[in-house]
Write a protein that binds this DNA or RNA. Sequence first.
DNA 1: CTGGTGTATGATATCGATAACATAATGTGT
DNA 2: ACACATTATGTTATCGATATCATACACCAG
Lengths: 332, 332
Amino acid sequence: MVDVARRAEVSAMTVSRALNGSRSVSAATREKIMSAVEELGYVLDLSAGALSSKKTGFISVLIPSFNNSNFSETVQGISEALASEGKQILVGYTGYDQQREERLIEAMLQRRPEGIILTGGEHTARARHILQKTSVPVIEMWDMPAQPIHHSVGFSHAAMIEDLVARLVFRGYRRIAFIGGDESGDFRGIDRRRGYERAIETLGLPRAHAVPLGVPPISIKHGGPAVIRLIEEWPEVEAVICVSDLCAIGVIMECHRQEWHVPSRLAVAGFGDFEFSRYCFPSLTTVSVNCTEIGLQTGKLMLRATGGSAVIDPSCFERLVIPHSIIEREST
Amino acid sequence: MVDVARRAEVSAMTVSRALNGSRSVSAATREKIMSAVEELGYVLDLSAGALSSKKTGFISVLIPSFNNSNFSETVQGISEALASEGKQILVGYTGYDQQREERLIEAMLQRRPEGIILTGGEHTARARHILQKTSVPVIEMWDMPAQPIHHSVGFSHAAMIEDLVARLVFRGYRRIAFIGGDESGDFRGIDRRRGYERAIETLGLPRAHAVPLGVPPISIKHGGPAVIRLIEEWPEVEAVICVSDLCAIGVIMECHRQEWHVPSRLAVAGFGDFEFSRYCFPSLTTVSVNCTEIGLQTGKLMLRATGGSAVIDPSCFERLVIPHSIIEREST
DNA sequence: CTGGTGTATGATATCGATAACATAATGTGT
DNA sequence: ACACATTATGTTATCGATATCATACACCAG
């Protein structure tokens, strides 16, 4: 930068100002600087700037996995929302593992992010402790945590499934089962399952029956065995709600194989509105969660949270609930 | 760090060494330092370290989009390969747009990455120029570029499709069409289409017929209209190869709707071996590209490239071809 | 003509670590 | 017992920008 300054016959400080778009640089000077930059092929070093300005321009984002298009879309949404301010995302994969999440948080903090975005509201005690000591804003997204650390943006998984059950009942189904939600580690799944159980009770339905799926990541292949087990355990079942569209698609494909007609033998509903769900045969009834939207909102909230005062103010913690919708298709 | 040093009664330099795992710190001193770190809740600042050591620990990765599970898997692979060395990925989305790629490259360089990973071998002239001036290694992945900048890791798209055509011919299909590969911007698609055309010629088949799809991202919804157009234009067609599994799935679903039996009326093959392709009905014949593997290999190559000498040595540029395989399923 | 206001620029210290070199303490072979 | 290697630690300068305060000059109202 000093070389550029020399060439443009100004001070390094003026170069810095010109490159950062400060208004108080005259047009003539700015032009001289820009051509010096061009001639020397100079590239600004943000990491040095980060040190002195104490603003790295990084936002850490931890997601369970990238192999789930929901999370990928969310990340893309966050990224787009932050790009306008030149912020860069640092992504980490927890692999649905809280220990790994804890380690990632520690690693991320060494990069001095201006904010941290986590997926879900369940963390190790140590992770919570570390985050509470930190002076950067934390956003938990996807699930609405019972005890938010700071801000949260998400869906009420239980409420969504309750809506879905109600819709199925409205369509005339009474014996409704659930696939998914293992006790050991699938927090989102468990939330949804609780919603299912509550809805069954509230609506006065005869029986709740859930087939657990094991720990995430849940994929298409889990659907087949689960539906076979379900039919064995509860032959009278009329409809099944799956913890995710992936699983539901697996269920539908197994039904094709077994020649159980969907929806007359078994109605199937999923969760997440994956792209394929609209095009598969029969097309899948599902709860549509706007993943890009949650990303955009999270990103915007992060900009607000980092833009304002340096202090974390508990009275300003936001709690954004992103609306969902039930999409009824051929499978119910 | 000075506070920690004072508390542990050593110098800052020793603290630095201890935290970076230098061997030449005695066990007793290390322990004193670690407990001081713990007591003070000190967190190392890598951005400061980056400035003085000139090693940021960042690798930039530019991909077209995250909404394609192939690229997501690749990124996850890269991330895993680099995590072992504590390197952090900086992701950017080009949206299949070279101008945007160029801007992203410039923005990334300001973060002083130790390496740059690009998707594909087609870039703007200015982007090439910028990358050539830069002293960090560049890896182009996915496509094997005609003029690689430095290293490349990928598949030969043309060769893969040639294999696929040959396999279809072996199965007895003669009238084979192709869907995808628009002239304006879909470089990967064009590569595949050229492979198709060459194979048709080499194998002495009666006719090559391609239905273009428009610019990426290609999704399921593009398949339906394309297959309808295909059947109109070439009613005698027996098999169709789609530029991607997503498109092929759209084709299959449209065939269900039109009651064109797959594969007896029309055989369908795709590209990419998406998870769904294994479970859809009929299950899809496809070219399996190991996306995680390409990511892992790219990541490892990057570690080699950044680990060695500081100079970029053209004689050491690697060109890794990742093997593919044809997976025959019910759709052909 | 004077004081006040604003704009454009410069000088210096500093952000928090590490590289490079220096030094002290310990061991090792002959 | 001595030179020499090895290990453990400290000192100082530096990485490349920006914050902060200082300064110079132009402009305008009274």
